[in-house]
Amino acid sequence: MMDYNIRGENIEVTPAIREYVEKKIGKLDRYFNETPNATVHVNLKVYPDKNTKVEVTIPMKDLVLRAEERNQDMYAGIDLIVDKLERQIRKHKTKVNRKFREKGELHEYFASASETAATAVEDEEELEIVRTKQFNLKPMDSEEAILQMNLLGHSFFIYTDAKTDGTNIVYKRKDGKYGLIETN
C-alpha cells in the first residue's frame, strides 16, 4: 500500500491537488506484482515567478524512484513526473527482475505486461562503459577543486580533501551554485 506525504511550499495542498497526485502516481501500481509498501514523498513548490517544481521520491525495499520537474503548470508537471517515473521503472524492470531470479526468489518485483517492441528493446539495453580514465587524486580544498573543475569545463570534479584525506566530489548544480559530496 502506498501512503502519500504531500507537502506544499508557497502553495496550499488542496483536496483537488491531493486527489490528482494520488490518482496519477497510483497508476504506477500496474508495474508491480504487489502494491509496494512505500511512502510517496511529494513536494510541490511555487516560485515568485509562478513557475512550479514537483519532486517525487518513492523509497522501497530494493529500489528508490525519484524524479523532479519544473513547469509553469503544476498539473502538467505532475503528469511529466509520472512519465519520468514510468521510464525509470521500464528501464530497470529487466535488470531488477533478473537480480531477484539470481537470488533464488520465486516472485519477480515488477509485473510482466505486454509491451511494445520499442519498450522491450529499451529494457534489454545494457549499461555500456565506452571510456575509462585513471588519474591520481591531488590533495586540495573544495575551493581549489571548484577552480580546477571550472578550468577543465567539467560539471563535477573528484579530489582528495587535504584536511580529512577523504575522497570528495564537487559539482555544479542546475541553479549555478556548487555542491559537495563527502565520502566516509
Rank of each mutant, 00 (worst) to 15 (best):
R30N: 03
R30H: 03
R30G: 10
Y31W: 07
Y31P: 04
Y31G: 02
F32Y: 05
N33K: 10
N33G: 14
E34K: 12
E34Y: 12
T35I: 09
P36L: 01
P36H: 02
P36E: 02
P36S: 06
N37H: 08
N37C: 08
N37F: 05
A38C: 03
A38W: 12
A38F: 09
A38N: 13
T39K: 13
V40E: 00
H41N: 09
H41D: 01
H41C: 00
H41R: 08
H41K: 03
V42L: 05
V42G: 01
V42D: 01
V42K: 01
N43Q: 07
N43D: 06
N43T: 04
L44Y: 05
L44G: 11
L44R: 10
L44V: 07
L44W: 07
K45P: 00
K45E: 04
K45G: 06
K45C: 00
K45H: 07
K45W: 08
K45F: 02
Y47K: 01
P48D: 11
D49L: 08
D49R: 00
D49K: 11
D49Q: 09
K50F: 14
K50Q: 10
N51W: 09
N51V: 11
N51R: 15
N51T: 07
T52G: 06
T52R: 00
T52K: 06
K53M: 00
K53R: 14
K53Q: 12
V54E: 01
V54F: 03
V54H: 03
V54N: 03
V54A: 06
V54C: 10
E55K: 08
E55C: 06
E55G: 09
I58V: 15
I58H: 09
I58R: 15
I58C: 06
P59D: 07
P59F: 04
P59N: 14
M60E: 11
M60P: 15
M60T: 10
D62G: 14
D62Q: 09
L63G: 02
L63S: 02
L63W: 05
V64P: 15
V64G: 11
L65W: 05
L65V: 14
R66N: 09
A67F: 06
A67Q: 04
A67V: 01
A67E: 05
A67I: 02
E68M: 14
E68D: 13
R70D: 07
N71L: 13
N71P: 00
N71D: 15
Q72R: 04
Q72N: 07
Q72E: 13
Q72D: 03
Q72F: 02
D73F: 12
D73C: 05
D73A: 11
D73N: 11
M74V: 12
Y75T: 10
A76T: 14
A76G: 08
G77I: 15
G77A: 14
G77C: 15
G77P: 15
I78D: 10
I78V: 09
D79S: 15
D79E: 06
L80D: 14
L80M: 15
L80W: 13
I81R: 06
I81C: 06
I81N: 08
I81S: 10
D83A: 10
K84T: 14
K84I: 15
K84V: 10
K84G: 08
L85C: 03
R87K: 08
R87Q: 12
R87V: 15
R87P: 03
Q88K: 15
I89P: 02
I89L: 01
I89W: 05
R90Q: 02
R90K: 07
K91D: 01
K91C: 04
K91I: 01
K91W: 03
K91A: 11
